[in-house]
Each structure stands twice: as C-alpha cells, then as structure tokens.
Amino acid sequence: MLETINLSKSFKGKKVVQDVNLYLNNGESVGLLGPNGAGKSTTISMISTLIKPTSGEIKLNGVNTIDKPGEIRRISGVVPQELALYQELSAYENLKFFGAIYKMKGKELEKGIQQALEFVGLEARQKDLVKTYSGGMKRRLNIAAALLHKPKILILDEPTVGIDPQSRNHILETVRMLNQKDGTTILYTSHYMEEVEQLCDRLYIMDHGKIIAAGTKAELLSILSTEDTIKVELNKMDETFVEYVKTIEGVRKVEASHSQMKIIATKGSNLISKLVHLAEKHHIQLINFHTETPSLEDVFLHLTGSKLRN
C-alpha cells in the first residue's frame, strides 16, 4: 500500500534521516520505534507530505506521493505530537473546523463530529473549552481531529506523550479498535516499547536517522536467541567488580546501576558459576539473581548500545 525507498532528509547539511526503507500493507499496524531525536517525526512528516525528502521516494499504491501528494493527503489522517488544537474553543468547534477544512458540511460533518467524539469518549464534554481538558482528554481530541474524514491510513506521532496511564490505555484501545474493527492502517511512532509491542504487527527500530532493525516482534526477539540476560542484585556496587565482570568470557554487555547489574552474555557461557566465584573474590555478596527472557528493550539495547528512553 505505502512504501518508502531510500528516504533521506538533511537539514543544513546534517542528515537526520538516512536511506529509510519501510512499507505498510493494507490494514496493518506498524510501529516505528526509536529514542528521541532518532528521526521518527521527520520520517512521518515526509510520509504525510508535510516536508519534502532530500532524496528517495514514497509510493502509495505505486504512485509517487512527492509529486502527487493529493491522494495520500486525502486518505491519511495525521495525529501530530503537539496538541494541534484551538485551546480557546470547544471540542465541538475544533472538530467542526477540522471537518470543514476537509470540505465536510451539513449532516455529514455533524455525524462525523459525533462519531469521532464518541470514538474517543469525549461526547459528554464536547461543548467544554479545550483549555479546561486534562492532558489525556486533549490527546484524545487530537486523535479525533484526525479521524473526522475517516482516513484509511492513520499516522500517529507519539500520541501518548505526557499523559496518565488511564488516558494512555484509552488511546491505545482506540487505536487498536481503529485497526482491528475499521481496518485502518496504522503507522505508530513511539519511544514507549510496551505500546508498540501491544499495538503493532510489525516494527521498525530507528536510531540516528537509520532503520537498524525491522520485523515482527518474534523476528526481532530472535536477534537475541543466542544470548542470555541475567539480572543480579548485589549488597554493594563496586566499579572494579563491574570491570572484571565485563572481562568474563561470553559477556557482551554490562549495565550497572545502584546495586543492580544487567548482564547480556552468550547462551551457555556458564556465567553464573563464574559470577559467584568472582563475587567471592571481591567480597561482594550476591543477594539475588535471575535469568530474563529477552524483551524488545533488550533488542534495542543490543542494537544501539543504549537504552530507549535516554
């Protein structure tokens, strides 16, 4: 349905997006995952035709959208990261305006507004001014504004930033319903791993402007199938001890914070016995340790060398 081919964007000579190749099938829910500054927003701005790429192509059903942006604009809805709403107007007035710019009017507009409000659970407060809403309600209205013209593709740019868990769940549920019941194709960007894990069929992991991994959750987790993740709790943290752990054969990465250590090592490297021996030598007591099933967070750590929410 939609694909990008070697999509790149430079600002003042600095490449912020480099050779991004991604595709979205009809009815699919795809996540674009990456830390802040990874280039996710720039990528979706290019996909939604808000900014022109420096090089590369974006094709909607084989047609280049850079030259002909009309069709993708017609069938897509974009939920921006910022709250693109008139705070001094009511939710109803906001939606009336956003519907009117899509040439909706009369009963069609009225019906669209009520459906969108119902969908995001704001119909009871539609006459209230947006500035009186909570952060979560504003975010929901931000989504409703993109749903009015019933888009086939919904592009969401970090729609849950800065809101409470309850509103977050509401938004995630809304997006899931749009995808599963209405068949809307979803492109969801976030730096919250668990959101993307919950919502998306496939994932693209982005860092420093590049796609560094892509696939289903299982495919991405298989990257770590040759590794064990072991979490260790110590009675005290010792920098020398951490350095020694790093030298143990098979250890690939060590993260230490306070009295805890997270060690990624090659499967079957008999790490625990070596660790016990080393701790005794350094007079450090191992309080607790367990082997973890790798998560997407671990995959990200493995691929980028840093945590997602740095």
Partner: peptide, 12 residues
C-alpha cells in the same frame, strides 16, 4: 501549534 500543518494536509 501544528494547526497550520493540519490545514496543509487537508484539501484546502
């Protein structure tokens, strides 16, 4: 605020 972008993406 991003409202301008919403308008750009519309048929207006």
């Amino acid at each position: 605020s991003g409202i301008w972008d919403r308008m750009i993406l519309s048929p207006m």
